[in-house]
Design a protein around this nucleic acid. Structure first.
Lengths: 145, 145
DNA sequence: ATAGCTGCAAATGCTTTGCAAGGCC
DNA sequence: GGCCTTGCAAAGCATTTGCAGCTAT
C-alpha cells in the first residue's frame, strides 16, 4: 500500500478543510481520525475499531477522544450514526440515503448498494410527530451450506 | 380495572399452557411475567420496565430473573426482540411480521399497523449468507408546531 | 431426588464524565 | 491569553455471570 507524498498532502488538506467547515479546531487527533475515516471509500466504524486503527497507524489518541470526535463529527454532519441494534454504535461515512446489511455473526455492517431497497408505502406519522428517518436493516446469517 | 375471577383463571391457565408448550417450568416468577406480557394487547417492554411492572403488581422478581425470562421466552418463540438501535433491548409480544415506530424523545416503540409499510425491492443476500430478518424502523421526532 | 430456577452481588462491555494539563487560534 | 481539547481514571448503564440455596416435577 504505497502512498505518494502528493496524495498524503491532499488527504491532509482535505481533512483540514472538513474540520474547518465543521467549525472544529484542527487538532492532531481529529486530523488523524478524519484522515482515517475520509481518505478512502465509505466505511462503518465503531469507536473501538477506530481507536485500534489509530494505534496501528502510530497515532496516540485516547478512547475518550475517539468517542468525542465521533460525536462531534456526527453532529457536524460529517458522519451518520447507524442504528443496527446490538450493544454498540456504528458510524457511517456514507451520508447519502441508503440502508444496511448487518452480519450477525461478525457484528459488521455494510451498505446495501444504491437502490436495491425501495419502500412501496410509508405510514403516516402519528399526530404531533414527524418522520426523522426510515431505516431498513437486513439481518444476515451465515448460510448453512 | 376490575378483573373477574373467571378471567384471572383463564389468564393463569393460558400462561401455564404457554410455558409448558415452550418447555419451561411453571415457576411463580415466569407465570407472573407471562401473565403481564400476554394477558392483554400486544406490547413492547424493556427488562427494566417489566421488572417495575412486576414490582407494582406485588410480584417479587429479581432483575436478573426478568432478563433470564425474556431470553428464554424469546428463544422459545414467545417474544421477539426488536432492534430499534439505542442502548437497550425491547421485546415485542407481537410475533407477526410487522415494523416499528421509534419515538426518539420518549424512547418508546410502537407497531406500525398492518400493511402500512411495504418494500418494493429487496437486495440479494451476499454470498454465503441468508436473510434472517428485514427490519424497518421509522424514527419519529416531536413535530415543531 | 434432582435437574432446573432464582436471587444476590460481583463482573462485564460500552460509553460518558470530571477535571487537571496541554495545545490551537 | 483564553478557550477549546485531550487524557486519564472513575463513574454510569444495561446486561451477564457465578454460585449457593430453593423448587417444580
Amino acid at each position: 500500500m504505497r502512498t505518494t507524498a502528493v496524495e498524503q498532502e491532499r488527504r491532509y488538506s482535505d481533512a483540514v478543510a472538513r474540520l474547518r467547515a465543521a467549525g472544529l479546531r484542527s487538532t492532531r487527533q481529529r486530523l488523524a481520525l478524519a484522515q482515517l475515516l475520509f481518505a478512502g471509500p465509505d466505511r462503518h466504524v465503531t469507536a473501538e475499531a477506530l481507536h485500534s486503527e489509530a494505534a496501528a497507524s502510530n497515532v496516540r489518541v485516547s478512547l475518550a477522544t475517539v468517542y468525542n470526535a465521533l460525536h462531534q463529527f456526527t453532529q457536524a454532519g460529517l458522519l451518520r450514526e447507524v442504528a443496527v441494534g446490538g450493544h454498540r454504535s456504528y458510524y457511517d461515512t456514507n451520508l447519502s440515503g441508503h440502508h444496511h446489511f448487518f452480519f450477525e455473526e461478525s457484528g459488521s455492517v455494510a451498505d446495501i448498494p444504491g437502490d436495491e431497497v425501495a419502500l412501496r408505502r410509508l405510514p403516516e406519522a402519528p399526530a404531533g410527530t414527524r418522520v426523522r428517518a426510515v431505516d431498513v436493516v437486513v439481518r444476515l446469517q451465515r448460510d448453512k451450506n
